[in-house]
Each structure stands twice: as structure tokens, then as C-alpha cells.
Amino acid sequence: MTDEINNPDIPVPEELKGQVAITTLDKIYNWGRRSSVWPMMFGLACCAIEMICTAASRYDLSRFGMEVMRPSPRQTDLMIVSGTVTKKMIPQIVRLFNQMPEPRYVMAMGACASGGGPFKEGYNVVSGVDTYIPVDVYVPGCPPTPQALLHGLMKLQQKIDNESISTSPWYSQGASEAIPIPILGPDLIDPRDFDRIAARRKAAAEPSPEA
């Protein structure tokens, strides 16, 4: 453990080696967070099965301190979007994301969550969860094998390692804004899209100048 967090720039006297570790606040803070990322117990589709297998004995997420899967978003650090995101489900996913405390991370597991996947052309499929919530790591594959998911999680740990307390947005003033929850209309409506829909309607109502 000391190897991981020791700051090599500051020399430790020979007689204190093995008893004292000198580190930076950032480093120990990040070390603590990266070793206890709690994912949400939240599965969508096929990829969820591989996620469960990753948590099971063969691949064993607890080696990374991630075995504590929490069913409640209030207690989680990481949302693994494991599977196809449908229009009917996206309001709930956005709501869950809004309920997660910061710092929070999102991983898009598999082709579907990243960009729609093989079902992209379907009428009820959202092409990529990142159109609504920010994604930190994308894991390609259909489905990603458990080892591929572990690789993605290690990539997330690297990302956490590179963050700093002084610049982290979750300690800055003012609460972060919640993402507006999509509405189920005649088709899925993103509340941020109202203007665009109105403009389209106007364009459709007016006869085009060429005609």
C-alpha cells in the first residue's frame, strides 16, 4: 500500500523507512476513493449478466474494493449502465443519476449503452446514454467479457487518480444542476429540445420558399 501512495519526491530518512509514508493530500484522497468505488446494483440487459459474473467468484470485484453493490443511488459512486437504454427507461436512469451524490461516475458498458449498439435503429432505443448523462468510461464489446469490464474499471481508477481536490467541481460553490428528466410524449422529449421542436413545427407549417 505504501508504494502506491508514497510521494517519491520527498525523501524519507533511512531509519524511518517502512514506518513513515509521506504523501500528498490529493494522492491519499484519490487512493481512498479509487479503492472503494461502490457501483449501483443496477442492470439493464445482457451486459448486466456479465456484470454479475464479474462480481462473482471468478473475476471477483472485491479485489478492487468494488463488491459493495448498493441498490440505492444515494449510496453509490458509480453507475454501470449495463445494457440497452430504451426510451421508456431513460427517465428513470436520469432520475437515478440525479439522485447519486457527487463525486459520481458513469460507465457505459457495452455497445448499446455507448452508442445504441445493434439495436440502435429500433424505435424505442436511445442511441447512447451519453446523450442524457455524462459518461466517464466507455467499454466496447457486445457484451464486454468480465475481464473487459475489469479493464474499464481500472481505467476509471486511473481517471480518479488524476483528479485533484483543488479543482474538483463537487467542492466548488453552488450545487451542480440536475439534469432535466426526459418526458414520454408521442416520442421521447428532451426538455432541452423544446426550441428545436418548435422551430421544426414552424418550418413544417410554413410553405417552403421554393414551393
Binding site: Y138, V139, P140, T145, G152, K159
Partner: peptide
């Protein structure tokens, strides 16, 4: 090769 995780998909995928 399955170790393909990335931070960005718009440019890389």
C-alpha cells in the same frame, strides 16, 4: 484484444 475501454467515443469509436 478486449482491452479497449476509452474515455471518449466520439473520436475513437
Amino acid at each position: 484484444d478486449f482491452e479497449l475501454s476509452a474515455y471518449d467515443r466520439q473520436s475513437a469509436h
